[in-house]
Design a protein around this nucleic acid. Structure first.
Lengths: 146, 146
DNA sequence: TTTTTAATGCAATTTAATTGCATATACTAT
DNA sequence: ATAGTATATGCAATTAAATTGCATTAAAAA
């Protein structure tokens, strides 16, 4: 299993993707943010530097390659976070708890593992998604800004 | 706590909603289907009888009133299922396992309860969503139709 | 019935996502 | 280095989804 470095350029090379300014910027933003981020928010940050369509395509490519994983939030919006080094293109080992703050809308990847779930006979589960909705530590600190 | 009957007309009356042909039809469809159903699929079924916009509004109303609960599937699409009788407008007691079949795309409400989850200090969880993705019992029976 | 209140359907608008294609850029081999 | 090849990007146009305003219609209350 290939270990992915946290360095954007290395990540791109390991995945046979061309090292472009736009791709590096996207990875930088996502790594910088400790939470998962949506296409929309990325566009707000990078819209001056990267075309809207290119951003869509970069995110899709990263997801296909297993570089990012996608978390769907409360509203059905896709949010992207960097995968752990154990992720591959074909199976994401990202089965940890996600926390979606209903105040600031950030999604956090938390350490808590998804517990074993009892699946009824006849059903075969491949992936389990566990998301908690509520107020994050930042927003909980009395003041409601952000 | 008000017990909701499974009868569409009763449900509407209990929620101070006018008894219209369109609202009854939507409830009928959702009760008939044992799985959760998306706006899109409802539109396919009811598009001849109910205007697209009306359908949006009915679903929103039902969700606000706690008559339906919304489950977001793998693709970020909202799916609607009838709430258990314990649901109220302000808190949905729908914290059971959902199963999203990646073959037929149906979402099933399963009996399995969401287990207790350890939430880190500073975070306050109000709702927990637990969704398993995989192959449902119907699709698992060798033939891949549906 | 009549009156009041609310829901519906249609048209128009706004917003989001996708596609095709010419141009520009990164990597490979010379 | 440079030229050639493969691919990514940006723009324009299109397609699709969701929302809003408003006139009409229908349901419930008086």
């Amino acid at each position: 299993m290939i270990m992915q470095k946290r360095n954007p350029v290395d990540i791109l090379r390991e995945n046979q993707l061309k090292n472009t300014r736009q791709r590096v910027r996207v990875l930088e933003e996502i790594v910088a943010d400790k939470a998962a981020i949506s296409q929309r928010d990325l566009e707000k940050k990078l819209g001056k530097e990267i075309d809207r369509v290119t951003l869509y395509r970069i995110l899709n490519t990263y997801e296909d390659k297993g570089i990012l994983h996608r978390i769907i939030d409360f509203n059905g919006t896709a949010n992207y976070a960097i995968c752990s080094s154990a992720c591959t293109a074909h199976h994401h080992h990202d089965e940890h708890l996600h926390f979606n703050c209903t105040n600031c809308h950030k999604i956090y990847c938390l350490e808590t593992k998804v517990p074993a779930i009892n699946i009824p006979d006849g059903f075969t589960a491949n992936t389990i998604s566990l998301i908690a909705y509520g107020i994050c530590d930042k927003c909980g600190k009395t003041d409601k800004r952000n």
